[in-house]
Design a protein around this nucleic acid. Sequence first.
DNA 1: CCAAAAACCAAGCGCTTGCTTTGGTGGAGT
DNA 2: ACTCCACCAAAGCAAGCGCTTGGTTTTTGG
Lengths: 200, 200
Amino acid sequence: MLIPQLVSEGLLTEPNSAKGRLLAASAALFKQKGFSRTTVRDIAAEVGILSGSIFHHFANKESILRTIMLEAIYLVLARMKLTIADLDSCEDKMRALLRCELEAIHGLNGIGFTLLSAEWRFLSDESQSEILKLRGEYEAFHRNIYTEAKSLGHINVEPFFIRHFVRGALIETANWYHLHGDLPLEGLVEQIYLTTAVKW
Amino acid sequence: MLIPQLVSEGLLTEPNSAKGRLLAASAALFKQKGFSRTTVRDIAAEVGILSGSIFHHFANKESILRTIMLEAIYLVLARMKLTIADLDSCEDKMRALLRCELEAIHGLNGIGFTLLSAEWRFLSDESQSEILKLRGEYEAFHRNIYTEAKSLGHINVEPFFIRHFVRGALIETANWYHLHGDLPLEGLVEQIYLTTAVKW
DNA sequence: CCAAAAACCAAGCGCTTGCTTTGGTGGAGT
DNA sequence: ACTCCACCAAAGCAAGCGCTTGGTTTTTGG
């Protein structure tokens, strides 16, 4: 599996440890009520400890959010590279990346990824720039595929714009698309693929 | 002008009144720091009064946000209808609506519209459903244009999906596109128009 | 088996929050 | 001249916040 490997590399927290459970519970609450409306007492109650005990694991409340976000990017980055590794055609890669990002947005790798765009502003300046760097790597990965697609004639709008538009469209799906609904994930991938990346 | 008319209809607060200045200052702070990190003392200081005086104009802090959002929708709805009124071709209408929404997103009609998506969750359930109703009217307006475009053969993806994708793409521009930068607003409109609504 | 380390508890401090209360002022209407 | 009312300053309340502290329990590894 991918997760145990990332844990052993020190990028992810062991999910079954006390700290890991704290992260999972916090992420769930942050998604449900937002960071600022979630109190450390809420988090503690969710895992069955007292609020003060949280600060044995984290320096402060913000560093919980920071850790959740960092690990979410580590995971999605690793998953992206793994998915693409054994694909040759550019079209397949584009679809795979669309699917990969949609899975992350809809919580199939944990709920941390959703928080990245929603609770961004609650991080300190230092944490923000720390994550910004990883996000740059993530975005470059996507943009590179579109650059390749453009050179092959699969799209004819600048990769810069395509990527920005696609990212917005995908993020917005969190507000209207439901897994387990009528439309399977593959169908959603195909719809946005047709809309943005078809040669004409 | 449009705004004085809406004021006289009771939909908008007179911008130069004490209440109007309070709304503008609050909106600016909410956008800058977010709703939950903005205190009533911050707002009061911004307009030069004490925090207690705010509650002569508003029942509570949430109703400030609620009013900002309601008036933002009233304004953008009125502007949309006005813009489209004297257009005939469907393509022109699509471009006009794209431009209209982008202008709202980038604060050309005040900053209330931006808050609609970002600070949504801080409203009470009643306020949320109140705004949801207006938002339905707003979305129907956009979707109708795409339905017309589909029947005319300008697009061949379902209006339902197109509208969702476009909305996401437009909202996301708030995080990367800058007015007064290299790309004029018309150019941005054209890029997304080409990406989403071109017959092939 | 036992000491070290990790995890947690009980209590509460210092501060900020949204909101209230009270007591007043100035200006418009009659 | 009088009333009324929109408006505001000052002070403060009750509640809740993140976080600290000192000490206890639980887990772990040699």
